[in-house]
Nucleic acid binder design. Sequence first.
DNA 1: CCTTTACCTAAGCA
DNA 2: ATGCTTAGGTAAA
Length: 367
Amino acid sequence: MSTVWRTLKVSVEELRLETTLKCGQSFRWKVSGENEWSCAFKGRLITLRQTIATDIDYRTYFSPNVSSSKINHELDKLHEFLIDYFQLNTVNLRECYTKWSKADKHFARIALKFKGIRILRQDPIENLFCFICSTNNNINRISQMVEKLCRQYGEKIYTLNGEDYFDFPILEKLTSPNVVDELRKLGFGYRAKYIAQTAKYMCENFSDGEVWLLSLRNLSYKEAHAALLKLSGVGPKVADCVCLMSLDKHNAIPVDTHVWQIAQKEYGFNAKIKGASNSLTTRNYAAVGDHLREIFGEYSGWAHSVLFTSDLRPFEDRSTSARESNSISSTTTMITEKRQIKISQEINSNIVREKSLNNNNNKRRRS
DNA sequence: CCTTTACCTAAGCA
DNA sequence: ATGCTTAGGTAAA
């Protein structure tokens, strides 16, 4: 194995990996080291790290006999991929945060604690099937299910530190007649059927299902959303996730239980004030989306994602003492996660120093 | 339109 | 320990 780090030259304000990779947009990035995440895409394992407040490094892995020109070429391609994946040339997040903070008090209140949360530009196939898995489910189990899906039907790409990394499977693999049974055995529950039916539908109705899905990028938000609703296991919320996270519909707003809670708590969507019923009906779903689009404008889906993340349990604004009393966890992965969050909080408040990464300073920090 | 119910499963909690 | 609830919803009635 030979590998070198390159730099992406992006500040934490533009992109903070800890939240962006782990806030439930993508379910395949794994913690592979201190402040470091890895994931396989299209035949290549990618590792990212965010060590100090100023930049992000990336690397990938080659067999020993690969020429340096080939390595350079691949790294150039990887750089392009990352720029596209994080939409770094398209969206200036700092400007967005400024605008959104002016437009909305609640956003302004959480903005400083949740900097650098970007919407990824994901592969639509991966995005679609992951969110079919997401229904009535939690992020932890979704990630486990996606891992199983990749292990079962995806190509093994690389082994890093004893951990195997798989590509997301190609669509054809999911059309095999025994997919339902296999996924059932793997614990997918009723989602097994949705996955099989959607894969089948896409392959039977279009000459190339993947190309068809990708082509929805060229349609309007409304058209793309309507097209997705025909897929089995895809309702309004999942369709909006796919629109926002892989089809370039920047003002698509998935209204899930979290967003509905936020809408009731922060934006007056409760039965008494707005005459809304207190459940997430079709009408309320549309009303919340319209309301947030009204406030945040062109990239309202991105703003929504910051609101959503601020409401997630692992990122909640809990006090240090609450967090520590909670950290009697026994598994190493959980300790890694918590350590990750702590380090990221330091990065986020710009107080990080090389030495503070290496000690176990538990002092209270304020931002 | 709105409301209700069933649907798989595993982790968290009492 | 066994039972109950919850977790990024969707489909059918």
